[in-house]
Design a protein around this nucleic acid. Structure first.
Lengths: 290, 290
DNA sequence: TTCCTTGTAAACATCCTGTGACGCTTCGCT
DNA sequence: AGCGAAGCGTCACAGGATGTTTACAAGGAA
């Protein structure tokens, strides 16, 4: 029940991103032979791992920041299905590989439907377990491919994942971890509206309970810092009843970002609704021409 | 035929989770018995599917816009590994499920390492194949977020579900959540008349009580905003005693519809539908109540 | 005409978000 | 260890946006 996971803790930063990068996984099983063999193999790969002997609550799993969990349903006893469903629901980003004794087709189908990502039947070769875990994890990592590559620019701010920080000119916004995750997530969405639930589950790692205001609060903190550093721009836009959208919009009338103004002579009279009397340039950080 | 498939499968993002949404998959196999059973099952699920008898080049696979591919490596012969590797490299977004005869651990590991998402050993139950395909697709989809459904165009308005908003030129209509749901629902119906009950139950989620005027009220609000933004067009048409129909109809007789960006094809042929040509016997609309 | 359906507008009731403050916990420093 | 600052999550409140209901006028159908 302690925190320590393995010796090599911070040896490999989580977001390393390589195909064969170290993962952080947990094994929930009691079969000592299996555990031993698997552990040895995991050690050799340099994956951080931890063996659990009994089911953990969802938030405990979150705090472990796992990439994947290998679980023998036999350990869970009769509430296996319920537990599996709850965990999959709460941690949509966690890879879950069931590795258990003989089962029927119906059981396997049920497990997969409830949210398991793979199902391996014992006895099995540890190498195959590892390959399947990798396969499961591989799928989730891909979109973060841009990490460490190009810093993201929007209006005056520059978001640099390599520093976990955003800048305006030379000045840092002094974002905290959560704040940075949030702005990165929003900016990544390329101007799409993100619903609160999605923001929460992707940034916090587990599903949001109704009525949680955390996202709002952090949006406010972000807005404050953005406003202070870049007063002539608006970045985070509220979509009432839905969520937030990130898009740099200048408050200056003349500072028109030459984008794709094109030839559309929008026959649309602007500020009629008590807007902020600013031009309608809804231009995003990406030319949404395509 | 070709477009009949893409047309509307993504049109059910309402469920967001998309647990049971229709998928598009291909089966590359020659085992007629297996194919037959699997096909029948896929049909019942309403998944678009296609049977292939020989390996396809990557670009062909791209053009099929598949969610997943189920493949028996035996069909590929000696170049199976090479082919698998090439395909996985070329289409990182495609879910690949190997479903093949007896294999060694080494073979399975190799396949998974090369990029396969799952490996099933024949003989196997079609239900399990389906469950595993679902699992693979579920995992694959989550990060990429919402399906990038192309924006819906009608007359001058553009409905973008990624922003929960409709636009005319550069101007947003400033639709509220309900208003947007309504216009999206109507526009999705491709000019069919929707009864109030259906509109209500699909947009509000529960059945309408007699005498509820909510739909009417929102139709009015929508019409107002549409009228202000695009005065020369009519979009929502009342069908007395039945419901509403969405169809862009220009009020200008001579000006066809060259006014807006020529680049955007008016994917919506307005006029031909239900003009004044015939009276109100469109009673025969399909009441596809659920 | 007479009844029923739809358009319109406003009043009303709800829900949603912005905001500041308050504890709790973690972390760094002395 | 003790202390203080910073980060994080929760609360409660207020103002505003949105959804729902009601009432009446206008338009179609019989």
């Amino acid at each position: 029940m302690t925190e320590s996971i393995t010796a090599r803790d911070e040896a490999t930063p989580s977001g390393a991103g390589g195909a064969t990068s170290a993962l952080r996984i947990a094994v929930l099983d009691r079969d000592s032979g299996f555990i031993q063999v698997l552990s040895k193999r995991l050690d050799r790969l340099g994956w951080e791992h931890r063996v659990l002997a009994s089911p953990v609550p969802a938030d405990a799993a979150v705090s472990m920041r796992l990439s994947a969990l290998v679980v023998d349903l036999a350990v869970l006893g009769p509430q296996a299905w319920e537990w599996l469903e709850r965990l999959c629901g709460a941690l949509p980003d966690l890879g879950i590989v069931v590795c258990t004794g003989p089962s029927t087709v119906a059981q396997r189908v049920r497990g997969l439907r409830l949210g398991a990502d793979d199902w391996i039947t014992k006895p099995c070769h540890p190498e195959e377990v590892i390959a399947r875990v990798q396969s499961v994890v591989r799928r989730r990592r891909r979109p973060s491919g841009r990490t460490e590559s190009k810093p993201l620019m929007a209006g005056e701010v520059e978001i640099r994942s390599d520093r976990f920080q955003a800048f305006v000119g030379d000045g840092s916004l002094d974002l905290t971890r959560r704040e940075f995750e949030l702005i990165e997530l929003l900016a990544d969405a390329e101007g799409r509206v993100l619903e609160r639930e999605e923001i929460y589950s992707r940034s916090w790692g587990y599903t949001m309970v109704r009525g949680d205001r955390s996202v709002d609060v952090f949006v406010r903190k972000l807005r404050q810092k953005l406003e202070k550093a870049s007063p002539r721009w608006r970045y985070i836009h509220t979509h009432f009843g839905i969520g937030y959208r990130f898009a740099a919009e200048s408050l200056d009338v003349d500072t028109v970002e030459v984008d794709v103004p094109a030839s559309v002579p929008a026959a649309w009279d602007a500020g009629d609704q008590g807007k902020l009397a600013r031009p309608h340039q809804d231009r995003e950080l990406t030319p949404d021409a395509l």
